[in-house]
């Protein structure tokens, strides 16, 4: 990781010094253990603050939309999928973007770490390759990094960036996308599914961190914020309305969601949002053989039409 950090800093410094870009968007050290924080470097000196580690959980594609200046971004596999999708939607100008791609083995889920130490407070961490030590007052817990990764990361098959201008890190072994979580949920009865979703949605406080953290959510006015007509209640204590919010969000993400998990990571209430987003990802993949943000040259799937497209929603085939 230190090696990657150094390479990122050097690349960023060079780009800034040679005036190839005005800004490098990356990560800096966070103020809490298990956290890194999005960082905007505009000078070579600031570029020295850039870091790379397994706490770089945010999707930085979010910060690249509608920028006028020349920007470089330190981007992992899922950030790049979102970038590709956003280029297609004319939200990012590829000519003004320099992609420092970083190969990714997955990011650490701070909630899993907290669960592991059972209510104790983690004050410090030490990573030695495959292993991480979580330290605190009367606490020294060793864990395998692999076991603490975000679920979205363990199921992700795109740790190797699909496009980049420069690649940092070692190529990751190829993996197949894995939808076991969704298959398990699909196997439940309609009632059980409804119950589970109601329980999750009860926790929602309508802070909209999920929507705002999502690189693909960029409507000028989100339907939940409209008041004439008011599509859904503004009350957070209405689990049904909360589900409509997430449901519409997922529908709006069909064929666009980069399956990055940024929405779920942002949720302060620990709501299982990837269950909904990934159901959309799986359905689009199964129906059209399409996954968002993988191929810079194809058309977004729902903007395209072939006469032999399957239409199971129109008639039983």
């Amino acid at each position: 990781m230190q090696k990657l950090t150094k390479e990122i800093q050097d690349t960023a410094k060079k780009l800034l010094e040679e005036n190839k870009v005005d800004l490098v968007v990356g990560f800096a050290k966070g103020s809490l253990p298990l956290r890194s924080t999005p960082y905007f470097a505009r000078t070579a000196e600031q570029a020295e603050e850039l870091v790379w580690n397994q706490f770089c959980e945010n999707n930085l594609a979010n910060y690249l939309k509608k920028r006028e200046e020349k920007v470089a971004v330190v981007a992992k596999g899922c950030d790049i999928r979102a970038i590709v999708a956003l280029i297609k939607e004319n939200q990012i100008n590829r000519d003004n973007l320099y992609i420092i791609g970083v190969t990714c083995q997955g990011m650490i889920d701070r909630n899993k770490a907290d669960e592991l130490v059972n209510g104790k407070e983690i004050l410090e961490t030490e990573t030695n390759g495959e292993e991480i030590v979580l330290k605190g007052k009367d606490l020294e817990q060793k864990a395998k990094v692999e076991e603490l990764l975000y679920d979205t990361c363990t199921r992700c098959a795109y740790g190797n960036p699909v496009i980049y201008d420069e690649l940092i890190g070692e190529e990751q072994p190829a993996k197949e996308p894995n939808f076991e979580d969704i298959e398990k949920f699909e196997a439940l009865s309609a009632e059980e599914r409804a119950q589970y979703l109601a329980k999750e949605m009860e926790k929602c406080i309508r802070c909209y961190a999920c929507r705002n953290a999502c690189p693909m959510c960029y409507c000028d006015t989100c339907f939940v914020d409209e008041s004439t007509p008011q599509w859904i209640s503004k009350r957070a204590n209405s689990a049904k309305d909360n589900l409509i919010f997430q449901g519409v969000r997922v529908f709006h993400q069909l064929g666009r969601c980069a399956d990055c998990g940024a929405c779920e990571r942002a949720c302060p209430m620990g709501i299982n949002l990837s269950l909904l987003t990934r159901k959309g990802v799986k359905d689009v993949k199964e129906t059209y053989g399409y996954e968002a943000g993988l191929n810079p040259d194809d058309k977004p799937v729902l903007s395209d039409f072939e006469t032999d497209d399957p239409q199971p929603f129109l008639m039983k085939e």
């Binding site: 924080t37 999005p38 960082y39 905007f40 979010n62 910060y63 406080i205 309508r206 802070c207 909209y208 961190a209 929507r211 705002n212 953290a213 008041s227 008011q230 209640s233 503004k234 942002a266 302060p268």
Partner: peptide
């Protein structure tokens, strides 16, 4: 504000934040 997402996590979870909105249903 550059990195801020403009969400409501900080204000909704703050014990002293108290701004509100009125809606007629």
């Amino acid at each position: 504000y550059e990195k801020c997402l403009g969400c409501g996590a900080c204000t909704y979870l703050c014990p002293t934040c108290h701004c509100f909105d009125i809606a007629d249903e």
